[in-house]
Design a protein around this nucleic acid. Structure first.
Lengths: 338, 338
DNA sequence: TTGTAGGCGTTATCAA
DNA sequence: TTGATAACGCCTACAA
């Protein structure tokens, strides 16, 4: 491996001068700059990040820890984080916690051990004691997608409550009064907040919530299928259904197809997958601002690394978008911050 | 930051003993092991990867460089690479070259500078002089998804030629004789090999290739749309169309919908997106073994890191799968290696 | 079985 | 303006 010392020998200058040329830390005469640059090129010198990090305590690496990469939406998160980071000269290390608190802990430890400059965490659950230890290490952390209670760190989230509210309002305005709501066990912020939005919309329009229209124990493909099927079998079935998860939306579509009920029921799902435009029956969707979440999280973490306090604490909500079927443009796009 | 020295002080042993306890490099008496472990826990010691790497020249990091992350398929690649790596104790650093040879070069340099133990490269184009320099640095590299000519490194690819061949054979066996073929400019291995498969299938069944059925200048959504539209306007349009790209498949479906031609034309697209099951008109698809490509690439790179020569050189082909519409099971699954 | 000490490639302080 | 040199935290002969 060719080191600074080799370069300094080749160029006939001191190691310090080489370092100053590379990092532009001090003025070096044009003559020596040339000498050094030629030597670097000739020898194919590449700086050693270990040695540099050992001195500076900085790695130029941001750690991205994802809890569920099965969901296709995560690609745009990975994308935007990586791009934003690269633009600022950072590299991204990616870990999967795979819905396991233990793996999350491992990923966090690994991040500490690798001296990453900052961590973007999409947490597994509502708590992980180990996270507090990270904060004590003084390594910046921001939460993406989910928040963790009791932890004072910035947090970038989709405003799913407002998104759901908008979607339900749209349905009501297009004369739906019997609206189904399907989600998983209401044990995540996402589903809980989505349900809040649903309730609020009904309230605002003075519509009584009917418990038989609410299915809160669905999950994944099959769950969506079963939930919709049972809704359609009610004596007075809903004329519209909101589904708060991408996979469950799949199942919902199939159920409608099987029941040949596409003329009778309006569906709003959750996805930003392009394929959803081509699906029959046509559905409307709300899409999470995954890409923006990634970009903003990264910008915040970089600010924190540089000692700049993020001005929005502790939570930053990004709005979802509602795409109405048969319409290229999206219907509403309300931007809120708090 | 708490270092080994602090631990050794706390435990009342030497630094070397601490190191030996941590790395299990030498036998240490049970008594001192306890002492050290208690000290580690008490102080919250975490090894410093910089110092370690500086000595050992190993980082435990694999670099994954992707050329196009717009394509949703990449998520499963990222997924399988990360999981496989994590299982073997490696971390993954992810870079986007974004179809730019320059960015690819930057990512490679960054990888060298960070002393990654190995590189999985999904290359931008058919060549990049800089890659040869990487090989000279003696850092293991494997190509995923695309091969680069003139470079002697392992290479894990989808057997798109065979996949296309199977798909076209299926069409022929179901009595199609007029089969359209749509791809981009034939300037990538993928499209070239796909076209090879198309030609071979026609030959094997003694069907004359008709040049008006071949559209090789399509690209992206719009390209697929235009290509299919023009095919459908032929005086004797094809009864089946093969589309060798996910986005182009989108456009193709729309074109068929607009032309209301779904009864008349059979479509086979390229994707492994779950949504494609729900699309109308129903389509068949061949799917790339992205996940397997990721897993195998990672296994190979880890072997190389450990000095084990991969036994399959220089290319390893993984088979695609053909999913016939209206059928849950896939029709064929032929596994070949060469 | 345990300890001492040199050096990995940088950066940064201090002299020159 | 440039150059010596002492850390940074760890591993690993080599000694004891």
């Amino acid at each position: 491996m060719v080191s600074m010392k080799d370069v300094s020998n080749e160029a006939g200058v001191s190691i310090a001068t080489v370092s100053n040329v590379i990092n532009k830390t001090k003025y070096v005469s044009e003559e020596k700059v040339q000498l050094v640059q030629n030597a670097i090129k000739k020898l194919g010198y590449v700086p050693n990040a270990f040695a540099k990090g050992l001195k500076t305590k900085r790695s130029g690496v941001i750690s991205l820890i994802l809890h569920d990469t099965f969901n296709p939406q995560y690609m745009s998160l990975v994308n935007s984080v990586t791009k934003t980071a690269q633009e600022s000269g950072y590299s991204v290390m990616i870990h999967h916690s795979d819905r396991s608190v233990n793996k999350e802990k491992e990923a966090l430890m690994n991040s500490v051990s690798n001296s990453v400059d900052g961590i973007i965490l999409d947490p597994v659950g509502l708590k992980n004691e180990y996270i507090k230890q990270i904060l004590q290490q003084n390594i910046p952390i921001v939460f993406a997608g989910l928040s963790i209670r009791g932890i004072n760190a910035p947090c970038v989230l989709a405003n799913i409550k407002l998104g759901t509210y908008e979607a339900i309002c749209h349905l009501i305005k297009t004369n739906h009064r019997h609206i189904g709501f399907i989600t998983n066990a209401l044990n995540t912020n996402l589903s809980k907040e989505s349900f809040e939005g649903y309730k609020k919309a009904l309230e605002d329009f003075n519509i009584t919530m009917q418990s038989e229209y609410i299915k809160t124990n669905a999950s994944s493909h099959t769950g969506g299928y079963k939930a919709v099927t049972s809704l359609l079998m009610l004596s007075s079935p809903p004329s519209a259904i909101f589904v708060a998860d991408e996979l469950m939306t799949h199942g919902a579509i199939e159920a409608i197809n099987v029941a040949k009920a596409d003329a009778d029921v309006e569906l709003i799902g959750l996805t930003n997958n392009e394929w959803s435009n081509l699906v029959k029956p046509k559905i409307s969707v709300i899409s999470l601002p995954t890409s923006e979440i990634g970009r903003l999280s990264t910008e915040i973490i970089i600010d924190m690394i540089n000692g700049i306090k993020p001005n929005v604490m502790p939570k930053e909500y990004l709005s979802t978008e509602l795409f109405i079927k048969n319409s290229d443009a999206h219907a509403m796009h309300i931007n809120t911050e708090e």
